[in-house]
């Protein structure tokens, strides 16, 4: 998911300290507020491990939004019409905005923007595995909206109730905007499905390539997700990986039917007893391989991101130099 932080094991020897044995008054007050489903705000006392978990999750969520601009950005100059181009620019701009809301939320925890960017650019911090796959044809842009953003919405709606105030407020803003992303993608695909055989084949091809990656976005099964239980306890994570994945599949199957595409899973079928769809095995080896940096586009995405940042250095420097000059001029005039 955009927030795969919960699912990635700590580096050896850097395990987050879990709840300590001596419970201070502050800690008791914190726990009581969490139990009462209250919110924690930046100035409130919080355990170090809670702070670290949030910094990690929110910054990686932000990185996902920023890197997520790249696969779609590739298609801005190749969009099939002015209308689709305007829509895509607006969507990519939204993703940039979502990254900024989230970086701001993480900064309230005492980390700095530079530190977070350093983490991303050095490869130390992760971002969602889904953006390490290529966007090969125009239908991929539609499928990203429909399925990738659809999966993101599934994950982000419960985050609107996250125990950390600034994160939950950022998520409310993000979710309001995200619905446009999913709908524009689905609608673009509907139009293609009324086109030529070749266009229909493009849609099916994009769905075939991205379906399993979208299911993996929710993260490993609950049993293999190292931080899930603590995240649930703290009200950071509200619904488990498997439960969100199931909700996503159940919501998507009828949409695929209306669209007229097949989801590439022979085991996918309605289970009357469970009142859910059964589905096949996800290739977790492939997921971990991508998370660890060996997916098809990891190197290219990171290199593009670092280059964009470095190429913009002179702009940031110039803006600061201009501000300093203005301040000095104002001080001289006042003297």
């Amino acid at each position: 998911m955009y927030t795969q932080a919960m699912d990635i094991p700590d580096e050896p020897g850097k395990k987050l300290a879990s709840v300590s044995t001596t419970v201070s008054d502050q800690e008791a007050a914190f726990e009581a507020r969490i139990d009462a489903d209250g919110r924690i705000e930046p100035q409130d006392w919080m355990p170090d491990a809670y702070r670290k978990t949030l910094v990690r999750q929110i910054s990686q969520h932000a990185h996902s939004e920023i890197v997520g601009m790249l696969p779609e950005g590739n298609w801005i100059s190749r969009a099939p019409s002015l209308k689709r181009k305007a829509i895509l620019i607006a969507k990519v701009q939204d993703e940039g905005g979502h990254g900024l809301y989230l970086y701001s939320a993480a900064e309230t925890l005492g980390t700095s923007r530079d530190q977070m960017l350093e983490g991303l650019h050095s490869g130390k911090a992760k971002y969602s595995s889904i953006f390490n796959y290529p966007t090969l044809n125009w239908a991929d842009v539609g499928v990203i909206g429909w399925l990738v953003d659809g999966a993101a919405i599934m994950n982000q709606i419960p985050l609107c109730r996250c125990s950390y105030g600034p994160y939950s407020r950022a998520m409310i803003r993000v979710c309001k905007e995200e619905s446009f992303h999913q709908r524009q993608g689905y609608e673009a695909l509907l139009v293609m499905m009324q086109g030529t055989e070749a266009q229909k084949a493009m849609v099916q091809d994009a769905v075939n390539r991205l379906w399993w990656k979208c299911l993996a976005m929710f993260g490993p099964p609950d049993a293999d997700s190292p931080h899930s239980a603590q995240g649930m306890r703290w009200g950071i994570k509200r619904i488990s990986n498997d439960e969100l994945r199931q909700k996503f599949i159940d919501a998507t199957v009828p949409q695929a039917k209306v669209l007229g595409v097949t989801l590439p899973d022979p085991d996918l079928k309605w289970n009357e007893e469970r009142q859910h769809h059964d589905y096949g095995q996800i290739d977790w080896q492939e997921f971990w391989n991508t998370v660890e940096g060996n997916g098809p586009c990891n190197k290219e995405r990171l290199a593009t991101r670092v280059k964009a940042h470095n190429d913009g250095q002179w702009v940031r420097d110039a803006a600061l130099a201009y501000t300093r000059k203005q301040q000095q001029r104002a001080q001289k005039e006042a003297a």
Partner: peptide, 23 residues
């Protein structure tokens, strides 16, 4: 409604428009 980084007040206003009032 949130916060952002900017070199000065004029730039902060400009960025706030783009980040927080796109709709």
């Amino acid at each position: 409604c949130g916060s952002l980084h900017a070199a000065d007040a004029a730039q902060a206003l400009h960025m706030a428009r783009d980040v927080y009032t796109r709709r």
